[in-house]
Nucleic acid binder design. Sequence first.
DNA 1: TATTGTTATACTCTATAACTATA
DNA 2: TATAGTTATAGAGTATAACAATA
Lengths: 172, 172
Amino acid sequence: MDDRPDPMRDSATYLMFELMRLARRTSVRMFPGGLRLPHMLVLACVARLGPMSQREVAAELRMDPGDLVGIVDALEEAGHVSRRRDPEDRRRYALDATEDGRLALGEALADRARLNEVLFEPLSADEVRLFKDLILRVLAHHDTRFGEPGPCRQPGEDARAETGGRGSHAGR
Amino acid sequence: MDDRPDPMRDSATYLMFELMRLARRTSVRMFPGGLRLPHMLVLACVARLGPMSQREVAAELRMDPGDLVGIVDALEEAGHVSRRRDPEDRRRYALDATEDGRLALGEALADRARLNEVLFEPLSADEVRLFKDLILRVLAHHDTRFGEPGPCRQPGEDARAETGGRGSHAGR
DNA sequence: TATTGTTATACTCTATAACTATA
DNA sequence: TATAGTTATAGAGTATAACAATA
């Protein structure tokens, strides 16, 4: 039966696929009805980058502007974002996060942190940092958003456990 | 503008989400019309584990048996798998990979390897191995398929699927 | 921007047929 | 047999997500 090894398990993208399925199921089980990732991303985007148009959000998140309509509809109905016409250019919206939206984002971030704790429990804190660092380096290679070390570390934030230089830090 | 850090980027599951989006887009761009991951998984499963029922495939891959119907339909129509009734139990199919299916699987595996090379180009071979190793350890902690002997159920999933061999179910 | 439509994936529920066990 | 319960597949329906085309 199990004589031959599964050739799929050699593929990093397949393993990531399995891990994402596990993450989604675990998320639904732990936080049913919670903010889903796309909504969370849009909310976090407007909360961080201030009043902006849907077009700008779509560009920032690499999402289809058409798909943003429904997401912003839902966030507006939930009272998480405000959506008024930009007086400078009435074709555009000026989206912004409400106070309630910022609270909801904080809760969603806490939930997601808890999810990550449960999911990555077998890894040490250093290993999780290394894991994220490897992904960030791959993303940076293909997507300018993740390009520079910029918004990952801030003055006043703790940077001592830096695992990832561009060099080789993974001997194994 | 606003140079506050994006709080999402601290979340391993968010970074994985972005990397999976990138992988899917890259895959479609490099191999339009190629075998998609679920089809590939089913094909690899029957090619490796010999003649088996759809129920067994679903259990092995943690997929919904209902969703398997369409996937096997497509694989059968493409000539990649054979689907005949199991004479021992005519409710079941005896699925098996055809020679053509094994060839197609080999090509799909080669394509996926090429995709992984392109995607993970910024990482060294050791780092990719480490990356896969970290994922495998996480998967093993939540899913019995991925090693780690021991009594361990994956979250959000029950143990309903236990179709070992034909014949006796001990507990009734 | 918004709308409409298409496709892929995942999950739920139900129907039907074939099997198992038992009275 | 007859009856009841279980299993394997099929199908409909829902929901999310990505994407294309167009108003």
